[in-house]
Amino acid sequence: MSDAEGGGSGVSDEAGPTRRARRVRGSRRLAHDGEWRRVSPRYVGIEIAGSFVTGVVLAAISLFFVYVFGAWFGWWMLGVSLAIMLVLLVVAPRRARAIGFQLREDDLLFRRGIMFFRIVAVPYGRMQLIDVNRGPLGRALGLSDLKFVTAAAATGVVIPGLPEAEADELRDRLVALAESRRSGL
């Protein structure tokens, strides 16, 4: 829980030593060493837009409750949804920074999330196909999403916010790596 507020303050101060100190102190966090590659800084724009849309939709639902049903809790809901939006907006840069991946020798490592943190390891030989998607906003920012699909639906490795050239290059590289380590299902 303390980490969520830490996320808020983390936006203002970027200084290395304090971050390091916090990591050592909050040792209950999952952490994995290695050189994590980050997604493009422009991806923050997509996160912000996403938070905004979430907030607007929640607010619209609350207003719907207020004006159509005249529900007493409608205004509370509106307040809560606006608060959620605010928190999401504040945390957005940190969420973007939390996404990372490593191309290790034989597998792809992917991490994501602040509050709900996860690390996934997928051997290259498990690749079935790779999707590169571009949404309207991503196109405007010149970003692509790269999806690494395995035979298991639950793997769910999606690297968002890669610059288009980098995404294409990464895709080709992953396909080549998978080809050299191919195996059965």
């Binding site: 209950r28 999952l30 999330g113 509050m115 943190f117 996860r118 390891a121 498990r126 298991a152 793997t155």
Partner: peptide, 16 residues
Amino acid sequence: ARLQSVRVSQGPVRRM
């Protein structure tokens, strides 16, 4: 040899 991927994850409760 048949494992597709490994995932380790942590939510707020488990972090506490």
